[in-house]
């Protein structure tokens, strides 16, 4: 089942009695770098909360290498899956203590002291994420981006097989965004860590992920490679935004250009022509789109 490391089988979950997510099925292979995209309020974070056990799954099942999650103990699950949330908690704890908490699932519940190995691992991942020189500082003294790096160091210290990241680049500039994603990419390749990441920036999603899942209104709109998912038709249908989709000349991955209101007024025909050529080149996208609607 190496092909199906994380498998969601038509799950429904949500807050209260209503479902925010309905019949989601997806699978992520071992060692994949998958991205979840979709408009605000489409259910991306709800999906994460379902997978990570914060929200109860009301229908369907989630399996991790073939084992249903509901049959796993919380600690067992925490040894396989680590979660980095969008806003890490800025506590008074030092960075080092914060990162060391990642070893909790590996320790006996009543064992209060870190082992030498725990400390070695914490040090290793603090170095890898570049926060080692902050280790004596309080978490609350770090910037948002540094806190996110510390949260990733903590997650890595859990030594998981699957890493869930909720918008790891949300409050970073382009340099730090790329540093962060390069780091995650290298973890994905070198540690064979399976990554599932929520990301808003479509271009970064296209550039870094090998698999994209586009969520709209609590359902999966479409999923596949970036080139399959990030077409102007899909973007227009889901985000209700006019864009032009092109290809990055170096990586061959799609790039999305937004079309502003003024340009839309003055260049309507150009955009129509552009869309026509793209549709002509990639007819399969159109048919794909139609069958979804």
């Amino acid at each position: 089942m190496a092909n199906n490391y994380l498998a969601l089988n038509s799950i429904s979950c949500g807050y209260g009695k209503s479902f925010n997510l309905n019949g989601i099925s997806l699978s992520v292979a071992r060692g994949a770098f998958a991205g979840i995209i979709g408009p605000n309020g489409s259910g991306k974070t709800t999906l994460f909360k379902g997978i990570s056990g914060i929200l109860p799954i009301k229908k369907g099942s989630i399996c991790l290498s073939g084992v249903p999650l509901e049959s796993m103990k919380l600690r067992e699950k925490a040894r396989k899956m680590a979660v980095v949330s969008q806003f890490p908690e800025g506590t008074d704890m030092t960075v080092q203590d914060y990162v060391l908490l990642g070893r909790l699932p590996h320790r006996n519940a009543f064992n209060f002291l870190e082992s030498a190995r725990d400390k070695v691992l914490a040090r290793k991942y603090m170095r890898l994420t570049g926060i080692y020189h902050y280790r004596e500082k309080q978490m609350s003294q770090l910037s948002g981006g540094e806190q996110q790096l510390a949260a990733i160091a903590q997650a890595l210290t859990q030594e998981p097989e699957l890493l869930l990241l909720d918008e790891p680049t949300s409050h970073l500039d382009i340099n730090h965004q790329m540093q962060m994603l390069n780091l995650i990419q290298s973890l994905n390749k070198e540690l064979n860590l399976t990554v599932l990441m929520i990301i808003h920036d479509l271009n970064l999603a296209a550039e870094y992920c090998d698999q994209l899942i586009l969520i709209n209104d609590g359902k999966i709109y479409t999923q596949g490679t970036p080139a399959e998912v990030l077409t102007f038709q899909n973007i227009e249908a889901v985000y209700n935004a006019v864009v032009i989709a092109q290809t990055n000349p170096l990586s061959g991955k799609p790039v999305i250009f937004p079309v502003s209101g003024n340009i839309l007024k003055t260049h309507r025909t150009d955009i129509n022509n552009h869309h026509k050529t793209v549709t002509g080149n990639r007819l399969f996208n159109q048919s794909n789109n139609n069958h979804k609607q």
Binding site: R75, A78, R79, M81, V83, P88, E89, L104, P105
Partner: peptide, 14 residues
């Protein structure tokens, strides 16, 4: 100690 990071994060830590 884990609860200092919030209930959700503590759950993620098992």
């Amino acid at each position: 100690n884990a609860l200092q990071l919030g209930k959700n994060k503590a759950t993620h830590l098992g």
